[in-house]
Simulated scan of single mutants.
Amino acid sequence: MAQLETRLRDFLEPLRDHGVGALLQAYAEALGRGGEVEAEPLVRDGFGQIRRQGPLELPARGDIAVTRDGRRLVHRIEGDGLESFEPITLVADGGFTTVLAPFAWERAPMLVESRQPRPDWGALRRWYLEWFQPRMADVGPDFGGVLHRLDGPRETPAGWALEVDFGTAPSAAVVGLMGAMAQSGALRLRIGHGG
């Protein structure tokens, strides 16, 4: 995986820079307007408990939370568009195929085609929870280098649809995702639009 990560870094880092740049700008603007600003807050319910959502019952993070005049609002920040590139196809030992097509770091659609009626989502869940945990981030001291959200899976005629917000996670998280999906019994993973 280390060789694959190195090969993909130059390809994935511009996508990450675009998404994380929009988040950093929104964070700086919120600080400038005053109030308390928190980066990458956990999404909680009305009782302060971590909210778990979707079929995999996963926690999520907002991009920033702003507290002003006793009111706290959690915001999702989206960049201003997709990076454009030709889709690339990677085939691993065993035939597992990943297609990377244009996507935004903060809202990457995925489609999973499986060898069996339903993939084993345990590997995907473990991958998400691992990258959801704060780690050393190269973004800044207030950011954790973490995933923010995973929606789905939802069965469709073409396979299983999901969407991931890679948050401030490094490009290594995408390589980890590919490995997790290969372990799940999936045949093919498409990240992005088209391909």
Rank of each mutant, 00 (worst) to 15 (best):
W121P: 00
D93K: 12
G179S: 10
D151F: 05
F166L: 15
M110E: 03
W121Q: 05
A108E: 00
G167K: 10
E163H: 01
G176V: 13
V139Q: 05
V174C: 02
R76I: 04
R71F: 01
G167W: 06
A104V: 01
G159D: 11
P119T: 08
R107Q: 11
D69N: 11
E83V: 00
G79L: 02
W121G: 07
L129V: 01
R115M: 09
D69C: 03
M136P: 11
P102E: 06
R149L: 07
F143H: 03
D165W: 07
I77W: 07
F132V: 06
M136E: 15
G179T: 01
P134N: 12
G81N: 03
P102I: 00
F166P: 02
I88S: 11
T89W: 01
W160T: 03
I88P: 07
E155L: 14
V139H: 07
E130I: 00
G81M: 03
F166C: 09
E83S: 04
V146T: 15
E155C: 06
A137R: 03
R107Y: 06
G167Q: 06
L111G: 03
T168W: 11
S171G: 13
R149G: 05
G145L: 08
D142C: 02
A123S: 15
D80L: 07
P119V: 09
A158Q: 15
G176F: 09
R115Q: 11
S114C: 13
S171I: 02
R135D: 08
A104P: 00
W160L: 09
R154C: 01
V91H: 11
E163A: 15
R125D: 12
G94T: 05
E86V: 12
A104D: 11
P157E: 10
L150M: 07
G144T: 11
R135N: 10
G152T: 10
P134Q: 14
L162M: 10
G179A: 14
S84Q: 14
L124Y: 11
L124I: 10
G122M: 07
A161M: 04
A108S: 14
T89N: 03
E163D: 04
E130D: 11
A104K: 10
E83P: 00
E130A: 12
L129M: 12
D165F: 06
P87F: 04
L73Y: 00
M110A: 14
G179L: 12
D120T: 13
G140A: 06
E113V: 14
G159V: 10
